[in-house]
C-alpha cells in the first residue's frame, strides 16, 4: 500500500482540514463534515447542496463556491453521507428561496437524501431534488438500481448553479438541472482498480494487460473486460457507447475526465481521439473540459460525458464560477 495518509480512519477529516487551510473562502466544518461557501446564505437565491461518498475529489466539495454549489457533504470513502449532514448544510445555505439537492443515483445516496429532504422540510426549508443518472454502461431496468450518476454531476452542478446565481426560482433551477441530466450520458473505462484506505488493497481484481469497459466511479464493473486497447480504440468504444444512447441533434458539451491516476499527458492524448471520433460522427463540440474532476481514488482510466447543449445551457455553462476546482470569468 503506497498511500500518503496517517491512518485510514482519519483520511476524510484530514483532507477537510487541509481544504479549510487552503481555501479560506469556504467554511469547513471538519467535525460535522459540511463544506459551505463563506458568504452563504446568499439573500434571495436558491442554494445547491450536493454530497456523496469521498474518493471522487474534487467532486463535490471542490465545486463549492459562487456559481456552483452552496454546500457539499462528504461521506466516508465511497459511502453516502448521513441525513444529519445534509440537513445541516441545507439550514446553513437556505436564504428562504429554497434548496436543491443534487443526488447521484446510488441506493445509499438516494435513501439518505430522501430522509434529509423530509427532515429539512420539517424545519421549514423548501427542498427539491434532482437525480443524476448518466452512466450508459448500466442498463436502466427493473433488474438493476438504474443508471449510475457519474460525470454529468459536474454539468448539473455547474449549470444549475449558474441558474441559481442568476436568481432563478427553485422550480426553474430544478428544471434546468433535470434538463442537463436528461441530455447527458457518460461512459467510463478502468485501466486499473482503485485502492480504498480501509481495505488497503485493490477493490477489484483487474489483471495486468486487461481493462474494464463501462466501469463505475467506485470500481463497479461495467459491460465487459477486454485485453488492453489503445487510446484510439478506447475513444471509439466510449464515444460510440454514449452516442448510441444520446443521439444529439446539435452541439455538445464534452467532459473528458480522468479517474485519478491517469496522467494529464495521456488524458489530453485521449481527448484528441475523442474529438476525432466526434468529428467523424458529425457531432460538433461547443465546449470542452479535460481533467480529473469526477475521480475514483487512485484508479487509472477515463470517462467521457457528453451533454446535448442548447443556447441557454451554453450561456449558463459560460457564466462565471469560482470554486477550488472550477474557476472562470471571476
Amino acid at each position: 500500500m503506497r498511500m500518503l495518509i496517517n491512518v485510514p480512519e482519519t483520511v476524510v477529516a484530514d483532507a477537510l482540514r487541509g481544504m479549510a487551510a487552503a481555501h479560506p473562502e469556504l467554511t469547513v466544518d471538519v467535525e460535522r463534515r459540511v463544506v459551505v461557501r463563506r458568504d452563504a446564505p446568499v439573500a434571495g437565491k436558491v442554494a445547491l447542496v450536493s454530497g456523496g461518498g469521498s474518493g471522487h475529489e474534487p467532486l463535490h466539495a471542490g465545486f463549492v463556491g459562487p456559481g456552483m454549489l452552496a454546500a457539499a457533504c462528504p461521506g466516508e470513502i465511497f459511502t453516502s453521507p448521513v441525513p444529519d449532514q445534509m440537513v445541516r448544510a441545507a439550514a446553513a445555505v437556505d436564504s428562504g428561496a429554497g434548496v436543491l439537492f443534487v443526488v447521484k443515483n446510488y441506493t445509499g445516496d438516494v435513501l439518505n437524501f430522501e430522509m434529509a429532504a423530509e427532515l429539512a422540510e420539517d424545519e421549514g426549508i423548501q427542498v427539491a431534488r434532482v437525480l443524476v443518472d448518466d452512466d450508459v454502461a448500466v442498463t436502466d431496468s427493473l433488474y438493476t438500481a438504474g443508471r449510475r450518476g457519474t460525470g454529468a454531476t459536474l454539468f448539473v452542478e455547474k449549470i444549475a448553479g449558474a441558474a441559481a446565481e442568476e436568481g432563478a426560482p427553485l422550480e426553474r433551477v430544478e428544471s434546468v438541472a433535470r434538463r442537463v441530466n436528461e441530455r447527458s450520458r457518460s461512459f467510463g473505462v478502468a485501466l486499473s482498480a482503485c485502492t480504498t484506505p480501509a481495505k488497503g488493497g485493490p477493490t477489484f481484481d483487474l489483471p495486468d494487460g486487461e481493462l474494464e469497459l463501462g466501469v463505475g466511479i467506485h470500481g463497479e464493473p461495467g459491460r465487459e473486460r477486454r485485453a488492453m486497447m489503445t487510446s484510439r480504440e478506447i475513444a471509439d468504444f466510449a464515444v460510440d457507447a454514449v452516442l448510441e444512447d444520446l443521439r444529439p441533434s446539435g452541439p455538445v458539451l464534452a467532459l473528458v475526465n480522468g479517474m485519478g491516476a491517469t496522467p494529464l499527458l495521456e488524458l489530453y492524448g485521449f481527448h484528441a481521439e475523442v474529438q476525432r471520433v466526434l468529428t467523424e460522427r458529425g457531432v460538433p463540440v461547443a465546449r470542452t473540459l479535460v481533467g480529473n474532476h469526477v475521480t475514483s481514488l487512485d484508479m487509472a482510466g477515463c470517462s467521457v460525458t457528453l451533454c446535448e447543449a442548447d443556447e441557454e445551457l451554453l450561456r449558463l455553462w459560460d457564466a462565471p464560477v469560482r470554486t477550488p476546482a472550477l474557476r472562470w470569468g471571476m
Binding site: G53, T79, S80, Y106, L111, M115
Partner: peptide, 12 residues
C-alpha cells in the same frame, strides 16, 4: 445508525 452509518445500510 441513520446518523452514523451512511451508505444504503444506514437508512435501511
Amino acid at each position: 445508525l441513520i446518523s452514523t452509518v451512511g451508505g444504503a445500510s444506514g437508512p435501511l
